[in-house]
């Protein structure tokens, strides 16, 4: 099966000398949902920013058969939709509808077509009634949904979600899980949230110091790298509970 994403020997160093990626090899196949685990600074976000050319490192990155390089940026950015960690970074237009239309308009669609796509995407994430609202009036969960709609309106083949559960309360996480579970696109989910990843991902990889240190099911990765936090009950808490 031809992979949607094929990354070979990817290296990247930031301007301040921080080495973020040290030879990453990775493949994403159609229909897959892959969780990217790893400590802060292990290179997960740096890696996904290479998938649509927001960062350019040394090595080879191909998306849907297209090399990720300047002449292909427009096509690649249509195929890879990134939902950023902080929705406020992504929502900058005065209303949700205008924000969701931003991508389709940049693709060169006529305003009527862009509006149609934007309305469809908002409906898909259950936010059509908020179309005329200013994004800053929405809750964190609603902002995340509108941000996802902004990406879906571009009709990408791959969804990249960077820490999607940040700022969300448990009902917001549950709603997001249901929404993402119903989307057909292949997904890459950068997360620390093992339970969220287990419910969504078909495979997981673990980043460590700029390299992929392990690969397997979410359960295997969590077990092998002890990637779960269990709070021990404090004696004071036990007393008050009694």
């Amino acid at each position: 099966m031809t992979p949607l994403v094929e990354v070979r020997d990817l290296h990247f160093t930031y301007d301040d000398g921080t080495v973020a990626l040290r030879g990453v090899d990775f493949r994403l196949h159609p229909g897959e949902s892959v969780a990217l685990f790893g400590a802060n600074g292990s290179g997960k976000t740096t890696f996904v920013l290479h998938l649509n050319g927001l960062l350019e490192g040394r090595g080879s990155v191909e998306v849907c058969g297209l090399r990720v390089e300047k002449p292909n940026f427009a096509a690649v950015r249509q195929k890879v939709g990134i939902v950023f960690q902080d929705s406020d970074d992504q929502l900058f237009m005065p209303t949700a509808l205008e924000d969701v239309s931003f991508g389709p308009l940049n693709l060169g669609l006529e305003p009527a077509q862009a509006l149609e796509r934007a309305r469809r995407a908002l409906e898909q994430v259950g936010m059509l009634e908020a179309a005329g609202k200013a994004p800053y009036h929405l809750s964190a969960g609603e902002k995340k949904r509108v941000a996802i709609a902004g990406i879906l309106a571009m009709e990408p083949e791959i969804l990249v979600l960077d820490e999607p559960t940040t700022f969300l309360d448990p009902p917001g996480r549950r709603a997001l899980l249901e929404l993402l579970g119903g989307l057909a696109q292949a997904k890459l989910i950068v997360t620390h949230d093992a339970a969220f990843a287990a419910a969504l991902a078909t495979r997981a990889v673990f980043f460590d110091k700029g390299r992929i240190a392990g690969e397997g099911t979410v359960a295997e990765i969590v077990e092998h790298f002890r990637w779960e936090y269990h709070a021990s009950r404090h004696p004071a808490g036990q007393r008050s509970a009694g």
Partner: peptide
């Protein structure tokens, strides 16, 4: 970050 998010949507 905002500029990056704009570029990601074809700005």
């Amino acid at each position: 970050s905002i500029h990056r998010a704009m570029l990601a949507r074809g700005f």
